[in-house]
Design a protein around this nucleic acid. Structure first.
Lengths: 237, 237
DNA sequence: CATAATCTGTGACCGGGTTCACGATTTAAA
DNA sequence: TTTAAATCGTGAACCCGGTCACAGATTATG
């Protein structure tokens, strides 16, 4: 089957659920069944999809765009925990019990989501156990990422912290180009700082020095060209 | 049924699996079935249960004792990620795919574990779906803890970091007493430092100053009396 | 119970990251 | 395209936590 059929844009939301890895094990008929359960919603840049402490009973799947999940810390900072983009979901804890959210979620750009009610999703999981396994797999990936994050934030050297973000973003948002990997940064300098527990100024200075060393090249504020990935990896050590 | 029957000590390993929350939904007959699949193993203080990067295909359940899960970081530190004690398990990622471990696991004291093979556990999950849900629930709790940890490690003030560990340990290892909550610390000062990304000296100094302020009282090196929990919580802000 | 091994507390110094400030650049909006 | 708003880069001073060193306390061991 033509994969483009699954694209949200070309199908007017008919098979958009098919793009989400949670549902890759389903065939078209099953997908149609799923889509009946889904509510669509759109958010503009800066809008909140979820408040910190809010209690909800549904699962939200990002279909287009990007959001950040963050907490306002006791010392007045903003700690960003996750960047969710196409195919990612949040609210999985709601599947088990009604708990207030650990974090707020804000759109970083125009964002479209699919929302599915807890009860419906639970039924889906019972009918198609593969979906439950997928959820578990994603949770494990998220644990991996946070375990890395804890290590990174415990690191004393700033260079290692900044390098590790750039490498993480390169894997998730980078595109290969003749000169190297071009990263579309999902966050501003301040956002990056809030992701790794530093200040905007420190991130700025470090990226400048990395550019001087020929490791990266900044293209405007929202793109970075990774000139030498292996050198950057080594610079962590 | 007398719950003491489930205790590992009093039953010579006959129903020890019943103590583990993973299996609380099973009745005695089912438990007996599970126990046939389990291999027991014991470790002395300081022994490694799992090496960083090791690939295994089983799930390890702590039945008695305590272990720490940690990584050796690129800048020579040791970053402790988890303290696992009675009823906790690790190796859950092995259920999905054969992946090298993100961390090493070392016994903090004499520790007894139950080991169950991946294939057997997967069968169990299929037969008793509640077990799978329990696993998911534990994974979500672990995410909660790491999300908190990331926030804590991003915090600039040392006081907030130390307070948050003490509060976490109070919840997990504390016992109410007339004077306050007595915490049996699972880690040395250095261990605590490696848990929150500081140095031993800094932790030492901060705990001394907390004692001077009348917030805590140190009893030897391995116990702490939490005199004023709410004051400590506020001291974070 | 004694002794060794380990862990802990604290002072002094140093360095790197934060803070504050402000001009320059980039991006978004009209 | 122009203008306004947001973001970014960088210098200077300060301050807090790391590092090093060592004595004292605690815990483990025989």
């Amino acid at each position: 089957m033509d994969k483009s059929l699954y694209a949200c844009d070309s199908c007017q939301h008919k098979l958009c659920a098919g793009r989400v890895s949670l549902f890759t094990s389903l065939d078209t008929d099953q997908l149609l069944q799923v889509i009946k359960l889904i509510v669509h919603k759109e958010y503009k840049k800066g809008e909140l999809l979820l408040f910190e402490g809010e209690v909800r009973n549904d699962l939200v799947i990002v279909n287009k765009g990007q959001v950040k999940a963050f907490r306002n810390t006791i010392d007045g900072r903003e700690q960003i925990l996750y960047i969710f983009s196409e195919g990612d979901f949040f609210g999985e804890k709601n599947l088990l019990r009604d708990q207030p959210s650990n974090y707020a979620v804000e759109a970083l750009e125009e964002t479209h989501v699919c929302i599915i009610h807890k009860n419906d999703f639970q039924k889906l999981v019972k009918e198609y156990p593969d979906i439950g396994l997928k959820v578990m797999e994603v949770l494990c990936q998220r644990l991996d990422r946070l375990e890395n994050a804890v290590e990174t934030m415990g690191t004393r050297t700033v260079g290692a912290r900044v390098s590790s973000v750039l490498l993480e973003f390169a894997d998730k948002f980078g595109k290969q180009s003749p000169q190297g990997i071009i990263i579309d940064l999902p966050l501003s300098r301040e956002g990056i700082a809030n992701y790794i527990g530093l200040t905007r100024e420190t991130v700025s200075r470090k990226m400048s020095s990395m550019q001087d060393q020929g490791l990266i090249e900044m293209i405007g504020n929202k793109k970075v060209l990774l000139l030498n990935r292996t050198a950057l990896e080594k610079s962590i050590e």
